[in-house]
Design a protein around this nucleic acid. Structure first.
Lengths: 191, 191
DNA sequence: CCTACCGATCGGTAGG
DNA sequence: CCTACCGATCGGTAGG
């Protein structure tokens, strides 16, 4: 558990605001106010607004990777692993909504360097999904004509959830996960 | 075919820039420069920057609707209709990329009124997809446990294409469409 | 459609 | 962490 110091409060406030309004529409004054200080004081804790964005993406990438990667090591079949990966992925979306949104949106408002680094982190994470698809194909359980296209199809569907899911809605995050698992497995089922 | 006057040039320039950099990061000076005039002159043609955004969304919504709606009236089975709808949808994404991107992205940087209207237009379009799902269920050809969830799953996958597809890449838009048709039909196939 | 400009706001800094 | 402020830039307007 991370110590809840002022710096964490600043990064947390920025994540919420970037997720809600976007990078450009969020001002350093918004972030400072949400963190309970004045905008000038922000720069005792951070270097630039863009660094703040990058830190959020890095933490979110870590959240997703730490939730999903261990599942790949479990002694289970590809379909069971995929099911648990989907549940873990949606668990992060549900539990860290603002962070996940900043991470999953390819924000076009940032410097080239920052976007390249954010993309690198997303690609790294996507490899975990390629891996489970390959396992399923090798085991003869999944039918995958084009791995990249299939992975894009599945992850687009999963990541779209962050744009409509709201806690307290008709379906719980777990219920959504369970239904999406079934839909994804139908895409892949070899029989 | 619309007359290619200066106003169209302005709206076209704005669409390209909003798609590439986002609404906030695009300045009225950027738009004016791209259209070959000075920023002050822009306001002889438009009322506000936000009106420009709304007009782009409206035209794009019309593009999608006009491409997809007629398919629903064709005398064909649900699977054949769905196939043609997917091809039409990806045809618009491929042919009007900037416009499609502005339309499909739920931009959180705008006023409440504009976002509400953009959402209304998207919802209207989504009904066409609900309609084909219902036809397929009624005909016993599609298996759909939860219509809304299934439609969200499919449209999220299809709309994700705009974030990675580039003309001249490994697969043509038609090839992507054909493969996505197969993946979507697997999600739905009742047998 | 241009010239000239406005009030507001932006990210960030200096000095304490 | 605050006070006080900076240069730059923003969307938009007046008058021609």
């Amino acid at each position: 558990m991370a110590r809840k110091n002022r710096r964490d409060a600043i990064v947390e406030a920025a994540a919420e605001l970037f997720a809600a309004k976007g990078f450009r529409a969020t001002t350093v004054r918004d972030i400072a106010e949400e963190a309970g200080i004045l905008s000038g004081s922000l720069y005792a804790h951070i270097a630039t607004k863009e660094d703040l964005y990058l830190e959020i993406v890095q933490r979110a990438a870590q959240d997703f990777t730490r939730a999903v990667e261990p599942v790949l090591q479990e002694p289970a079949g590809p379909a069971a692993k995929l099911r648990r990966m989907i549940r873990a992925h949606l668990g992060v979306i549900d539990g860290s909504r603002a962070w996940a949104r900043v991470y999953l949106d390819d924000d076009s408002e940032l410097s080239q360097d920052t976007r390249v680094e954010a993309r690198r982190l997303r690609r790294e994470y996507e490899r975990l999904w390629d891996a489970v698809l390959e396992e399923g194909v090798a085991a003869g359980e999944f039918r995958v004509e084009d791995e990249t296209l299939t992975r894009l199809f599945i992850l687009s569907a999963l990541n779209g959830i962050i744009r409509w899911y709201r806690p307290g809605g008709r379906l719980s995050a777990e219920a959504v996960a369970e239904r999406y698992v079934q839909l994804v497995l139908r895409v892949l089922k070899a029989d």
